[in-house]
Design a protein around this nucleic acid. Structure first.
Length: 273
DNA sequence: ACTACAACTTGGGCGC
DNA sequence: TGCGCCCAAGTTGTAG
């Protein structure tokens, strides 16, 4: 589920509660969620480390350790991070548990197990290819229409290009649909067919939708909750995603749903050209 | 180098 | 109630 706004929400909450805390114990409950190194080494190497700054890159959460190295999480479709007090039990589908020095535990919970975690040793962030391959950050001030134009090279559908993490980091199925609606661009348009004014509109739409979504706590379709267990509210503002057959908020015509490279795609046939 | 699709996995919702 | 089918916020690997 979690796309850039949801991950950013969680990042901010982690940044408020974790830095300065030491990890006392690490328990991997499902080995295959650990991408690197092997689960035993992951457990061993994290014990005694102190959490520093919490960063985000695309949909990845990066917990810098003060001693060096980075603890990484990708939430996949249903992944959650939860902080529980000393006496609270771990929820169903807890995959990794980190006990902190204040007694609380940081839990990685994921029913579908598409999520991943890894520990990247100091100075070895480049060894983790998924991160190395990520495209630019859409909310980075340096990301302008020119950078977007670069991401939209080639004649594939613009929506697929927006979701391609190596072209642009952070957009998934929900926000790709929402952004294209706000810009008035049809999801099936070849990326390289967009005029520069259209690119500027799309660039603006990306910044506006993502910023707005972060401020509204992200979108909760089914599973997403933030660190405190609270759902987002941006789904109430979706113009097209999940609204097939309902009126387009701009023109009132029914929103259509189709399939584009295997993903359900929502758009207004009247507003999006 | 493209695009399309299956695979990974669990669970919810729907029709019968 | 239950079974079977379809669907789901993501990524990766393979086939064409």
């Amino acid at each position: 589920m979690p796309e850039l706004p949801e991950v950013e929400r969680i990042r901010r909450q982690l940044q408020q509660s974790l830095p300065g805390l030491r990890i006392r114990e690490v328990e991997v409950l499902l080995a295959r969620v650990v991408d690197f190194p092997n689960p035993e080494e992951y457990e061993r190497v994290l014990v005694g480390k102190t959490v520093g700054e919490v960063k985000r890159r695309g949909k990845y959460l990066l917990l810098r350790m003060q001693e060096g190295g980075v603890l990484l999480f990708h939430l996949g479709m249903t992944g959650r991070l939860v902080v529980v007090s000393e006496r609270e039990g771990a929820p169903l589908h807890t995959r990794v548990a980190l006990r902190l020095e204040d007694g609380r535990r940081l839990l990685f919970v994921d029913s579908r197990t598409f999520g991943k975690t890894a520990f990247l040793p100091p100075g070895r962030k480049d060894l983790y290819l998924p991160i190395k391959r990520l495209g630019p950050e859409p909310l980075d001030p340096a990301f302008g229409p020119r950078e977007l134009a670069k991401a939209l090279r080639g004649r594939g559908p613009v929506k697929s290009q927006l979701m391609d993490q190596s072209r642009l980091a952070g957009l998934g199925n929900i926000y790709a649909d929402e952004v294209l609606h706000r810009a008035g661009i049809h999801p099936c348009r070849p990326g390289n067919s967009l005029s520069f004014p259209e690119i500027r509109r799309l660039h603006r739409a990306i910044r506006e939708v993502l910023t707005d979504a972060v401020n509204k706590g992200g979108s909760t379709i089914r599973d997403y909750v933030d660190l405190r267990g609270e759902a987002g509210s941006f789904q109430e503002h979706h113009a097209v995603y999940g609204r097939a057959g309902k009126p387009c908020p701009r023109c009132g015509k029914p929103v259509e749903r189709t399939k584009l490279s295997g993903r359900s795609t929502h758009f207004c046939p009247a507003c999006q050209r």
